[in-house]
């Protein structure tokens, strides 16, 4: 087993003249639950599609489980579980038939796992897919991906379309699957709430580029918010990177990625939670913020 479940090097994808993803270099360690976070149109779907081999790269390369899914689908696909955005399923099928489709399309297939899981969720096998709620459809799609017994599970916006209750249920059952062991998860989301409880690694994508990729623990530990009387932050910038600076008439507030120990008597230093860190990064570069291009095709 390689050290990284996913490795991207200078990865880029262009649709026409528009770069949906650009110069993306990142590693996702095996065994973690990674969140790919960013606003709509940041290139999350493009990155995931490149990873699972639905499309090929314009520049650079991406390897999952040590190989390129685009070049070696017959090697990579059996070890990979993928749930696309809006968790597409055959609407005219009964759930049992959907499972049969999974069984027919895969050499490794854990039918017992799928059946037990759906039974526990109270989703009957003879029900038509089209009559299921959004939350149930997401659960069926997740079940299909898990029944492949994948080493890497990739989920594209799995909770975006779900109401808060279904969202919590989905993440809970995802956690149970992860607890069973041996699974690396990469899930994208433009919703940050709830993710912190589930994920231990985060990649922040904005304006088609990676802004941050690190264990969540480290991210939270490294970032601080500084507040003090209105002043020029250039003294702080010399030692640390200032992610966001905001000023009122009297006060200046800085979100800072600390470079080692941070002590300055002029500033009040506070911890900052993940959501604020993400928002600070997203608010950093409004000039090249992405126009809302949905690169789902």
């Amino acid at each position: 087993m390689s050290e990284f479940a996913l490795e991207a090097r200078g990865l880029g994808k262009r649709y026409g003249k528009k770069w949906a993803l650009r110069d993306c270099t990142l590693e996702i360690p095996t065994g973690c639950v990674a969140a790919l976070v960013g606003p709509n149109g940041a290139g999350k779907t493009t990155l995931l599609h490149l990873a699972v081999g639905l499309t090929d790269a314009t520049a650079g390369s991406v390897r999952v489980l040590g190989r390129s899914a685009w070049e070696k689908p017959e090697v990579v696909l059996p070890r990979l579980g993928f749930v696309a955005q809006e968790h597409p399923l055959y609407r005219r099928f009964r759930i049992g038939e959907m499972l049969k489709a999974g069984e027919k399309l895969n050499a490794t297939w854990d039918q017992a796992l799928a059946q037990t899981r759906l039974e526990r969720l109270g989703i009957p096998l003879d029900q038509k897919i089209g009559t299921l709620s959004g939350g149930q459809q997401a659960q069926v799609a997740l079940t299909l991906a898990l029944a492949k017994r994948p080493e890497l599970l990739v989920l594209d916006e799995p909770i975006a379309a779900l109401d808060p209750l279904a969202r919590r249920d989905f993440l809970k059952s995802l956690m149970e699957a992860v607890a069973d062991g041996g699974l690396t998860v990469l899930l994208s989301s433009h919703i940050i709430t709830d993710l912190e409880r589930v994920c231990d690694y985060m990649i922040l994508l904005s304006a088609s580029q990676v802004q941050l990729a690190a264990p969540i623990e480290d991210i939270v530990a490294e970032h601080r918010v500084l507040s003090g009387p209105r002043s020029d932050p250039s003294a702080v910038e010399r030692l640390h990177s200032v992610i966001q600076a905001s000023h009122t008439d009297r006060q200046t507030t800085l979100v800072v990625r600390a470079n080692g120990h941070l002590y300055d008597s002029r500033w009040q230093v506070d911890e900052v939670d993940l959501e604020e860190i993400v928002l600070a990064y997203l608010g950093r570069s409004p000039a090249d913020a992405p126009e809302s291009l949905e690169v789902a095709s």
């Binding site: 809006e86 597409p88 399923l89 055959y90 399309l105 299909l144």
Partner: peptide, 15 residues
Amino acid sequence: EHGTFRFAWTQSVPR
């Protein structure tokens, strides 16, 4: 139209 080809293409059968 429904996007289910993405389901099929990410099972073990090459596209």
